[in-house]
């Protein structure tokens, strides 16, 4: 996703309440925000609620946009809050603050040491492979998943992710490392079964 203001869009027009310009903003950012909702909530209906609430909220508050972050980061922050609100409503038991800024990497020590990285693309991205990947992402705890989605899937920088989530950059980095390690373990377990016997270590 383009993280700066799209070239031919006017922030002034948006702030002044230009509807046509807002419609263009919606088309520019609705896909990534819907995708984020899908991956955070896990179903299309909730993702659509997140999408609609994000832009309703943006429409109401765009005149207060101060440009301290990029417009994309601002929209993501709204979307993340909408997604988290919905998660809290549906699953009050979920603890979104469950990862403190811990440097302890003890529990991250890799157990799956199998090099599957050279498996051909068609094997890695087979229908079944993609399902395994989606399932692994879906199983991440919310507090890690949101960081991972913004940084590694949507391509926000560490700084932008921190701004969107109201976290420190250190905290984003800690969560990102955890998310990546957990995913790597899961995918290693899955792909190692698909390696030809001779490459196994």
């Amino acid at each position: 996703m383009d993280k700066t203001m799209p070239n031919d869009m006017s922030l002034e027009a948006l702030i002044a309440g230009d509807r046509a310009e807002f419609a263009r903003l919606v088309d520019e950012y609705s896909s990534p925000i819907y995708r984020l909702g899908l991956r955070m909530l896990g179903n299309p209906q909730d993702a659509e609620d997140v999408l609609q609430n994000t832009f309703l909220n943006a429409l109401t508050h765009i005149q207060n946009f101060e440009g301290r972050s990029s417009l994309a980061t601002w929209l993501y922050r709204i979307a993340v809050n909408e997604a988290l609100m919905l998660i809290r409503k549906k699953k009050p038991e979920v603890n979104l603050e469950d990862v403190e800024a811990e440097d302890d990497t003890d529990d991250l020590r890799p157990t799956q040491i199998v090099d599957w990285s050279a498996l051909p693309e068609e094997e890695l991205l087979s229908e079944e492979g993609k399902k395994a990947l989606d399932a692994a992402v879906a199983q991440l705890p919310e507090s890690l998943r949101i960081v991972f989605l913004l940084r590694d899937v949507e391509g926000l920088s560490i700084k932008e992710t921190a701004e969107a989530l109201n976290l420190t950059e250190t905290n984003v980095k800690t969560r990102l490392l955890r998310a990546r390690m957990v995913l790597r373990e899961q995918l290693s377990a899955y792909y190692s079964e698909r390696l030809p016997a001779r490459s196994e270590k």
Partner: peptide, 14 residues
């Protein structure tokens, strides 16, 4: 191996 497979994991989700 951990480095290569972590990089690959990130490539795949992107």
């Amino acid at each position: 191996i951990v480095l290569n497979t972590t990089k690959r994991t990130i490539d795949l989700v992107q």
